[in-house]
Simulated assay, not measured.
Amino acid sequence: MADEELRKKFAAKKPVNFKVDPAEGTHVKKVIGIVSGKGGVGKSFVTAMSACAMNREGFKTAIMDADITGPSIPKMFGVSSVKQVNEQGLIIPASSSKGIDIMSINLLMKNDTDPVIWRGPVIAGVVKQFWSEVCWGDVDYMFVDMPPGTGDVPLTVFQSLPVDGIIVVATPQDLVAMIVDKAVNMAKMMNIPVIGLVENMSYMKCPHCGEMISIFGESGLDSYAASKGIDVLGRLPLDSSYAKLCDNGQAEDIISEDLDQLVYRLKSLMDSEEQ
């Protein structure tokens, strides 16, 4: 068959729609993916802080923990199990002390230290079930904590959920440009808007004099963001008190103004749709 005939044959096929319908009774206005090009950058922490920031603004907020093999969101918020189902047999998500709804594989495990030893397609299927078999109710902002990299789960989320945009998490190391590029380029290939970048572990404050110290060297995030036309949404410090609060399930007690720009952008995203 000639090349031209092949092109016509495949062009005539309808594109496959991978979108999954939400569970009955679920109405989510905005779905925001939190991604990173590699692990160890504090993506789950940024997810938690983003949800807390929007919750404090009075928005109904939820977190879908799609990091199936490394779930940490429940521990940060001090929730341990999901035991309720509604009349339709749909799971009711757990709720934090300040009203953030949470769904994570760890909430369904007998022990939170049990490993999840599943292959990619099974993990991707669970993520879709978190959307289609969990009754989230009315949610203004759902933050999806995705595993690092550009594998099965991020692809599943982008294809299956109505993602309105992603927030990319990075650290100040020199390698950050290449790492961020991977996540940004994947989003572009999937036609998902990049809302902006958050730099975690950006600095620390001297406990004695308050001087800001760049432990990992000077950040190149501003120049990178400018070269890509992407906003920097905030910089989070390396702070041992934050780690202690998260370990104690008190992430909601962390008060920080470092994500003011992120809050502004997300509120603008909501306002633009309502106009």
Rank of each mutant, 00 (worst) to 15 (best):
M1H: 12
M1F: 08
M1L: 13
D3R: 11
D3N: 10
E4D: 14
E5Y: 02
E5A: 12
L6T: 11
L6A: 14
R7C: 04
K13T: 07
K14H: 04
P15G: 10
P15I: 00
V16Q: 12
K19A: 14
K19D: 08
D21F: 03
P22V: 08
H27N: 15
I34A: 12
G37S: 06
G39L: 10
G40W: 01
F45N: 11
T47P: 07
T47Y: 01
C52F: 11
M54G: 06
E57V: 02
T61C: 06
A66E: 11
T69S: 08
S72A: 13
K75G: 07
M76W: 09
K83V: 07
E87Q: 12
E87N: 14
E87I: 01
L90V: 01
I91H: 06
P93V: 01
A94E: 00
S95T: 14
S97T: 12
I100V: 12
D101N: 14
D101E: 09
I102T: 06
M103H: 02
S104N: 01
L107I: 03
M109P: 06
K110H: 14
K110N: 15
T113W: 11
P115G: 10
W118A: 12
V127F: 03
W131K: 05
E133Y: 03
D138C: 01
D138G: 14
V139L: 08
M142T: 05
M142Q: 10
F143N: 05
P148W: 07
P148Y: 10
D152P: 02
V153E: 08
P154G: 10
T156H: 10
T156K: 10
F158N: 04
S160V: 06
L161A: 05
V163Q: 13
V163C: 10
I166S: 07
I166R: 04
V168N: 07
T171C: 05
P172Q: 13
P172H: 05
Q173Y: 03
Q173I: 00
D174S: 06
V176E: 14
I179V: 15
D181E: 11
D181N: 13
V184W: 01
V184H: 01
N191Q: 04
V194Y: 12
G196K: 08
V198G: 11
I215Y: 03
G220A: 09
G220H: 06
S223D: 14
A225L: 10
A226N: 13
I230Y: 13
I230S: 12
D231W: 04
V232A: 05
G234D: 03
L236R: 02
P237N: 12
S240E: 12
S241Q: 15
S241F: 01
L245W: 08
L245P: 14
N248V: 06
E252P: 12
Y264E: 15
Y264K: 15
R265Y: 13
L266R: 00
K267A: 03
S268L: 07
L269P: 05
M270G: 11
E274D: 15
